[in-house]
Each structure stands twice: as C-alpha cells, then as structure tokens.
Amino acid sequence: KPFFFDNNRSGFLSLLETVRPFSESAVFAMEDTGHYSQNLIAFLVEKDFHTVLINPVTTDSFRKSKLKSTKTDRTDAVLIAQVYAAGLPSRTITKKDLLLKDSKQYARMHHDVKEEENRLKNQLQKELDIVFPEYNSLFKTKYSRPYMDILKEFPSARSLAGTDIRNIRKVVNAPHKGRKVSLSAEDLKNLAKKSIGLDSPSAELNIRFLIQKIEMLQEQLAEIDKKIEELSTELNSPIFSIPGIGAITGVTLLGECQDISKFSNAAKLISYFGMDPYQYQSGIYQSAHGRLSKHGSKYARKSLYQAIMPVIRFEPAFHAYYTKKREEGKSHRCAQGHAVRKLLRVIYHLCTQDIPYQASSLL
C-alpha cells in the first residue's frame, strides 16, 4: 500500500526497511520530474538497487487510458507502479548515469559562464568607444593580461593623459605571462592626448567593475574546465579519440544525451540534437529546403558547430566531405550542417561499439 517517508536520511532508511521483504526483487520507479528526486536516486543507486525513471507524459497517458481523473500522491504512487509493471518505456539509472549528470552540469556551467564573459566584454567595448576609442589599435589581441592591467589602472584617455609618465611605465613594463607587448608608455600617453574620448567618470568606474567581473568569471572558468578535463579522463569515451574533439565538446555531448546506447540508430541521435531537417507538407505543397528542427539541447548544438571546423581541419575524411558539399553548391553553413550530421553518425558508431576512432573506417 502507498506510504510516506521523510525527505532525509532517516526517511530513506525507513523506506529500505519497509521494502526489506522484497529487497531482492524490488524495483524503485519514479517519474523524471526535475531535481526533486535526485537525492533519493543517488541514495538508491549507491545501495545498488534497481532504479528506473519514467517520463511523466507516459504516466499521464496511462492515467487517461484508464479513465482516471483523480490525482493524489497516493494514486500517483500506484499509477507509476502499474506503468512499470505494464512494461511501458522506462530508463534504468546507473552510477555512470549519475556521473554523466555531473558532466551535463559542468558543461552547462562552462557555456553559461563563457556566454556571460562575452556579454561583459561587449559591454566593456561599448564603454571604451566612449572614453578611449583608439585604445584597441595599440594591441594585436584584445583582453590580454597587459591590455586588461593597463585599462584597469587607466580606464580612459583622460586618466592616461593626465598621469605622470613614470607611473604609466610601471604598469606597461610590469612582468606579464606570455609574449611581451611592443608598446611604450610614451606611445600610450601620446595616443591618449590625441584621443577623442569623452570625460565620463561613470564610464571609467564601470570599466573597472567590468574588468573585475570578467577576471572573476575567468577564474571560475578555469576551475570548471579543470573539472571537465578530469571527467573526460574518468568517462574514457571513444568520442575523445576523434581528432578535433576536446574535453569540453566531448563532455557536453555525452552529458546532454546521457546514454547514447538508448538510441536505436544514429538518425534518432541526430534528431535528438535537433540537427534533422524540419519537414513541412500540406496538400500538394512540399517544402524544398527545410530548416533544422533545432529541438533538444542548445548547448549540444552550439558545441557541435564549434567543434566541426577543428574536426574538418584535422581529419582528412571530414575535410573531403565538407569540400564535396561546398563543390555541390552548398553554403558554408549548410556544408557545416552536413558535416555535423556525419560527425554524429560517427559518434554513434564509436560509442555503441565502444571502439576508438579510425579514419580508415570512413573511407
């Protein structure tokens, strides 16, 4: 019969005590409803119990098929048990699934932090256009250590122009990691004196704050990426054997789709990531050039498009395939899409067969 237990360790232990008479054959089934069940799932998997998740859409359809309108915690518990007993689709959760869930979280954190960093950098450029529009012309690479250190100390042309040259030299000539910039304090001050930049104390203050935020995000990103590197080693997936696929891309794709073996074929994996063409047909009308469906994870699609050009660059088989599509008259973006789908077919083959990448298998 349905029963309740507290959402804490003693409650979890009381659950195990209640089902002890059936522990050898017990299956713990629950709906896949966000984060609410994660603690219980981790507890049960750690205890080596057979634990499965059921899509809420499946249980809802089953309820309607039984013509039941009552919905309470007690009736839901019985309904979920009936859904599992009826052999309807469910997904078994393993310790590897928990590891992949962590992978998904780390990968999404990476992409979110990176996106926020880019947003702040765009905001920084906006402020620079107001107070020192000529500043970027002095540097081959934006956001290098000297670039940020100088700007942090002198956030406008006005502040630079009015500063003693000796103080500017201290900042410009300070030791930095990486390649030394070919920039003199004199060049910097002369440019500042000729600048059309406005005198805006609010913009100067905002530039300092933006640099602090960007540097904080970069520290966070370094910590996240270190965790992702460790996860990529622990997962040890064939996906990392593909030339051009790094830790971040590989962990993102594995985390977003969880278990690739749950897909019966590569086409379903392609569709899951929203890389399948959208089909539209009505009467005698049939769309000739359908756009991508783009359902599924935006993080996975972003990683796929970021990864495909390095794959094309480092792997001759993909380079030949991309070139072939371009020669057929496809645009760069369209040819990229074809290459991404080919990459997903390769990933599916490698992961389901658990074999490393070999270029000869594509020929």
Rank of each mutant, 00 (worst) to 15 (best):
E327W: 02
D6W: 01
K71G: 07
S14D: 08
E116Y: 09
V172D: 11
Y84A: 06
T141Q: 15
I196V: 14
K324R: 15
V45S: 04
R333K: 14
I260G: 08
F5M: 01
Q353S: 13
R119V: 02
A320T: 12
S361V: 11
Y348L: 07
M275I: 00
A85Y: 09
K104F: 01
D354V: 04
S200W: 04
K96R: 15
D6G: 01
G250T: 06
P21I: 07
R74K: 13
Y305W: 04
I224V: 14
T323N: 12
E17Y: 07
K68G: 04
F318V: 05
K342N: 05
M30H: 02
R291W: 02
E234W: 00
F240G: 09
R145Q: 14
V57W: 00
K66A: 05
K227H: 11
L100G: 04
Y322V: 01
A203Y: 06
K126W: 07
E328I: 04
P356C: 10
A203R: 09
T18V: 09
A26L: 10
K342M: 14
H289Q: 14
P243W: 11
F12Q: 03
G34D: 04
E229Y: 09
N122G: 15
K101S: 13
S282L: 11
V340S: 08
K324W: 12
N55Q: 07
K298F: 03
T18L: 08
E17H: 12
Y278R: 15
P310G: 06
A185C: 03
S264V: 12
Y285S: 12
S232W: 09
L124Q: 05
M216C: 06
R341H: 01
A161E: 13
T141I: 15
S37G: 06
E328P: 07
V340Y: 04
Y272N: 01
P310T: 08
P133Q: 00
P155I: 11
L362F: 10
S303K: 07
I211K: 08
L221E: 12
H338T: 06
Y280M: 09
F4Y: 12
V83W: 09
S232H: 08
G246W: 04
L350S: 03
S261E: 13
D102V: 06
N265T: 10
P310V: 08
D129T: 12
